[in-house]
């Protein structure tokens, strides 16, 4: 049942390629705004590159979160999914997995290119990709809570950043400082370990909270 849901969601995602590409394009455009706004000086850009890429990744994820439950909510299939014999948490986990595969993973894959454009020093690429791989699932997990809470609302789009961004702060701090540590040539495993721990924590909490949120949102 859950495999069927996974297949269906992936298929739906790949049929709607526009939705799939939009966050990626947004990511690229936002990060390329920074050299225009700050300065094209490669030295300065190299310093801020890690932060810029990570903020861009956060915002791009936020944009794509809206899609996690919205379509299913609108055509009524979300209600049916809540009625499945399987626990709602598992359904949420499948949704999160799909969201990560569709929106988080591509960010991690394209980030080195953006790092190159921003003049990220050589030591930074490895931690950049690893931190994105480790932390984008956290973004999807925490984001699913916000998506679940706002799914029935017309004004949900503006509300989501308010709810979710404060929770993203630890991710931002440790991910970007792992890149900085890599740039400075020091060890960054500590930061990555923290990201892993946060991933474990959210993996436990977020599906439960999202399941509760979905039940509330669909109770009307």
């Amino acid at each position: 049942m859950l495999m069927a849901l996974l297949k269906r969601d992936l298929l739906l995602a790949f049929r709607a390629r526009g939705d799939l590409l939009n966050p990626l394009m947004f990511f690229m455009i936002v990060t390329s705004l920074f050299p225009l706004a700050v300065s094209p000086d490669p030295k300065l850009l190299g310093v801020i590159a890690a932060g810029v890429i990570w903020v861009g990744a956060l915002l791009a994820t936020l944009l794509s979160l809206d899609l996690m439950f919205k379509n299913d909510y609108e055509d009524g299939s979300l209600e049916q999914m809540l009625l499945m014999p399987q626990p709602v948490m598992l359904m949420v986990l499948v949704k999160v997995l799909v969201h990560w595969l569709v929106a988080g993973l591509p960010l991690a894959l394209i980030a080195p290119l953006l790092g190159l454009m921003l003049g990220l020093p050589n030591g930074g690429f490895q931690p950049l990709v690893i931190s994105l791989l480790l932390a984008t699932p956290i973004l999807s997990l925490l984001g699913s809570i916000g998506a679940g809470l706002t799914v029935g609302l017309r004004k949900g789009g503006m509300l989501m950043p308010l709810l979710i961004l404060p929770l993203y702060i630890p991710v931002l701090i440790f991910a970007s400082s792992s890149v900085l540590a890599g740039v400075q040539g020091s060890s960054y495993t500590g930061h990555l370990a923290f990201l892993g721990a946060y991933l474990a924590l959210t993996l436990v909490i977020a599906p439960v909270a999202t399941a509760g949120a979905l039940r509330i949102s669909l109770a009307r």
């Binding site: 702060i169 949120a213 509330i216």
Partner: peptide
Amino acid sequence: KAAAILSIVGSINIPVIKYSV
């Protein structure tokens, strides 16, 4: 109910945020 869920998630996150900061 929605606010309750959000504030519970937030309060779990407060120590994480505090220490990370």
